[in-house]
């Protein structure tokens, strides 16, 4: 441990999605205004996967976000930004030393961390969730200055605590992963980045030939949802349903499983490129997101009174299938747009 005392001139903005928020803040540090929805859309934050055989916190794994670090890596790649990602440090102390060196050089550094031991984090969210992202932008004595996009203001974290959260264990363990930007070109080619981002998102949501990912995964889950009360009993089915809703609504999503943010991205790129079709697609996406919110509302009512008739799950499944159809239309629409 060497004693560094540096505080970088880093502006913290609150965001809906941790990684795109961190990316947008990092771009902001280098003088480029990249809004959160823009970083999210270009970096393919939109995703869906349902893995029933992998249990996280006693419920099937449901993810509305892409794998960790995809958003940063892709948005940097598509925009032609020189960025470094170090996937893994074997030695925790080496990982902390690398962070200190970066701060000495004046580079704000993003990190993947686990939520459970984050001392400043809201207590209701402190579960074992390993795909959270924070940016470290300074050190005062033993305390690191942390920009966490869930929180309203920058936070402090001690050396030991930071080491602990960077080496949280479990599925998708962070292993001390860190990333930063080396240099940014004067002008960013947003148009081609938007084109690449949309193409990749459409592929990931509709094109992957695997039944548990994208729109297909959504339909798979909807069909499974109908069977849950018979298969697991009302209590467990209600908990599993709650898991869908928690992943959808609460874990740093800005609501409705990022569909609002993606709609905002389509709208922003539509106004930027003067493309009416993108604006129409954004309207459809917004409506889909509102459907998601309605689904959450009905589902939460079910979670409140645990013993409900089984038809309720049938109805919820139908609602999910409807949402899947609506989403597929949006992806088919934006796939045809020529940019």
């Amino acid at each position: 441990m060497n004693s560094v005392n540096t505080v970088l001139n880093f502006t913290h903005h609150q965001a809906g999605h941790c990684e795109s928020g961190a990316t947008s803040n990092l771009f902001g540090f280098y003088g480029h205004e990249l809004s959160e929805p823009m970083a999210f859309g270009i970096g393919n934050g939109l995703y869906f996967s349902y893995i029933p055989f992998l249990k996280v916190q006693y419920a099937p794994m449901i993810s509305f976000r892409n794998l960790p670090n995809v958003v940063f890596k892709r948005s940097a790649g598509y925009l032609g930004v020189d960025a470094t990602v170090i996937k893994k440090f074997k030695d925790p102390d080496a990982a902390m030393l690398a962070l200190d060196r970066n701060l000495e050089k004046g580079i704000p550094t993003g990190m993947q961390v686990g939520c459970f031991n984050l001392t400043f984090f809201p207590p209701e969210y402190r579960m074992h969730y390993n795909m959270h992202n924070i940016v470290c932008f300074g050190k005062e004595g033993d305390n690191y200055l942390i920009s966490d996009t869930v929180m309203e203001t920058p936070q402090h974290l001690s050396y030991e605590d930071l080491k602990r959260v960077r080496y949280a264990k479990g599925p998708f363990a962070p292993n001390g992963k860190m990333y930063w930007i080396n240099s940014i070109p004067q002008t960013l080619d947003l148009k081609s980045a938007i084109r690449k981002g949309i193409k990749k998102t459409v592929y990931e949501m509709t094109g992957i030939p695997f039944p548990l990912v994208g729109v297909k995964g959504l339909r798979f889950m909807a069909r499974d949802l109908k069977k849950w009360p018979k298969k697991h009993g009302n209590e467990k089915a209600s908990f599993y349903l709650g898991q869908i809703l928690r992943m959808n609504e609460d874990f740093g999503t800005g609501g409705a499983g990022f569909r609002f943010i993606y709609g905002a991205f389509l709208k922003e790129s539509g106004t930027f490129l003067h493309n009416d079709e993108l604006l129409e697609a954004s309207d459809l996406m917004g409506k889909t997101a509102n459907q998601w919110r309605a689904f959450t509302y009905v589902g939460a009512r079910n979670c409140r009174n645990r013993s409900k008739p089984e038809e309720d799950y049938g109805m919820l499944g139908e609602q999910l299938l409807e949402i899947a159809d609506m989403e597929e239309k949006v992806y088919q629409k934006i796939a045809k747009i020529k940019l």
């Binding site: 809201p122 996009t149 309203e152 800005g254």
Partner: peptide, 13 residues
């Protein structure tokens, strides 16, 4: 009582 003390960014349409 410690739950629900922080404000978050929420999107809407």
């Amino acid at each position: 009582p410690r739950h629900g003390q922080s404000r978050e960014l929420i999107y809407s349409y």
